[in-house]
């Protein structure tokens, strides 16, 4: 199955989760994460968010993050989907799903992939608010989140 998709279209988390473990009797756990566009920000209501990315590098960076996860944990299947373009509050942005024999590896690898994606995959968010549009600043807490994997 294809591991990484960068797309404008929405995805179906239920179908993705089902596909991850389909016909794999060795899988004992599926962990998944879905990231959404959040409306409330201190700069005012977010009307929409536009995600720009670096075509070519994005897919490569996500594939490298998956490879690193495979080196660290005993995981079976991985699926990463990240959307780009203009998205409205409550719309899905990102999906990460991982299967493993036992739950620890799936949980840890899923969180690791999200933490690395947030600081390594070349996506940029621009928020539209009633006061105008602004690029979202990177968060230091995202950098700190990587420290626990070192």
């Amino acid at each position: 199955m294809q591991e990484v998709s960068v797309q404008q279209a929405d995805f179906d988390p239920g179908a993705e989760i089902a596909a991850l473990s389909a016909d794999d009797a060795e899988a004992g756990a599926v962990a998944s994460f879905v990231g959404l566009v959040r409306r409330d920000k201190h700069h005012g209501d977010v009307v929409a968010m536009t995600l720009e990315h670096y075509p070519g590098m994005t897919e490569q960076a996500l594939a490298e993050i998956v490879t690193q996860a495979r080196e660290r944990w005993q995981i079976r299947r991985v699926r990463v989907i990240h959307r780009f373009g203009r998205l409205l509050p409550n719309e899905r942005i990102v999906f990460v799903g991982v299967t493993s024999g036992h739950r620890h590896d799936a949980f840890a690898a899923c969180e690791f992939i999200m933490d690395y994606l947030k600081t390594r995959a070349p996506f940029w968010k621009k928020e539209e608010t009633p006061a105008g549009a602004r690029w979202v600043d990177a968060r230091e807490s995202d950098d700190r989140a990587l420290d626990r994997w070192k």
């Binding site: 990240h82 990102v94 994606l117 995959a121 996506f123 940029w124 990177a138």
Partner: peptide, 24 residues
């Protein structure tokens, strides 16, 4: 590939400049 400021350049390279990433 993300790189540091001391990364060398060669003919035909594709170089990109951008702010810290904010995906996810």
């Amino acid at each position: 590939q993300m790189c540091g400021w001391d990364a060398p350049l060669a003919d035909g390279d594709e170089v990109a400049f951008f702010p810290p990433v904010t995906g996810g």
